[in-house]
Nucleic acid binder design. Structure first.
Lengths: 168, 168
DNA sequence: TTGAAGTTTCAAAAATAAATGAAAGTTATT
DNA sequence: AATAACTTTCATTTATTTTTGAAACTTCAA
């Protein structure tokens, strides 16, 4: 396969996969593009390569910066802004994990805490079961989130590295 | 808060969160409902409670069964089918992890493998960088997926339980 | 302080995903 | 083998999300 063809395939497919990840297509495509770009790209470059509008490019570049997985770069003597992606994959994984925890897990914890402790003065089996079940869920999700956080620091300590090795 | 109110809040919010998880609203709501239901529910019950159509209920119940996180149950002397959710949370987590690996990670690996090994006979720095970068990504994602699989078996062995404990 | 080069915003349009409901399909009972 | 109880399918409708593009905004240089 030719380089251009392969690159295109990668960017397109990554975009399609992004949708399943709950990330929009363009955002995933821009990220893919920057991941494999040898040089920082300008917004113009990105619009051109992906055939998207200026507004679309602007909004998704901002979103990616909010996730902390791409960066603005200024070239001396250049007016325009250039963009690069985080290329350290460990760092990328950490950022994605943090962002997903913030967006997906924390809100779940919030509502679980509320509903599990809010049913007062009802004695029906139904109400009892509801409180039980949501409490268990809360504890479980909290534990899972803690593990996610821990595994972020994990690779920096000896035990972590050992376990990683065992896990292959 | 009253039980009914709390239950409603839980089901509604879980549905909204589901969207961010890349799961559709109804699917998440049905699952939430079954998680806190003391008794198995019929399709009729679910339609009624969530105010949704028969078709919608049917399709999402099937999807949840495909994920392996809810079950059909037959009551003696009853023609209708009833549904219950997986209530063992460890088991639930395993099922979700497996499903997400299958749907989100495996396809990513497939495309990475293809594109990382497909650029032939080009010597430009760009092409080189592309092959490098996608190869690294492939290795990384593969490792992550392996860890996910390993962590599924993890809690069943002594080392796993120990590490879990340390992670709190 | 004006204008050129660039970026952001946001209302409207387009694309995509989800929900409806009626018809077709099943299955159990008599 | 007819019918009643229940479930699934899928073409159409509805709702949601994404994209566009033109106007507003910002920043720098002359």
């Amino acid at each position: 396969m030719e380089f251009k063809e392969a690159k295109n395939k990668f960017v397109q497919t990554w975009g399609a996969l992004g949708s399943q990840w709950g990330i929009n297509k363009t955002m995933a495509q821009i990220h893919a593009l920057l991941m494999v770009a040898a040089e920082p790209l300008s917004m113009e470059d990105i619009m051109e390569e992906l055939q998207i509008s200026r507004g679309n490019a602007s909004m998704n570049l901002r979103a990616l910066m909010d996730w902390g997985i791409i960066y603005k770069e200024y070239k001396p003597g250049e007016r325009r802004e250039f963009f690069t992606s985080e290329k350290d994959l460990d760092e990328l994984a950490v950022k994605i994990a943090q962002e997903r925890s913030k967006r997906e897990i924390k809100p779940a914890l919030k509502v679980l805490k509320e509903v599990s402790s809010s049913v007062k003065g009802e004695t029906s089996a139904e109400a009892k079961h509801f409180t039980d079940q949501t409490t268990k869920l809360y504890d479980f999700v909290l534990k899972a989130d803690n593990m996610l956080e821990k595994s972020i620091e994990f690779k920096d300590n000896w035990l972590g590295r050992l376990v990683m090795k065992i896990m292959k």
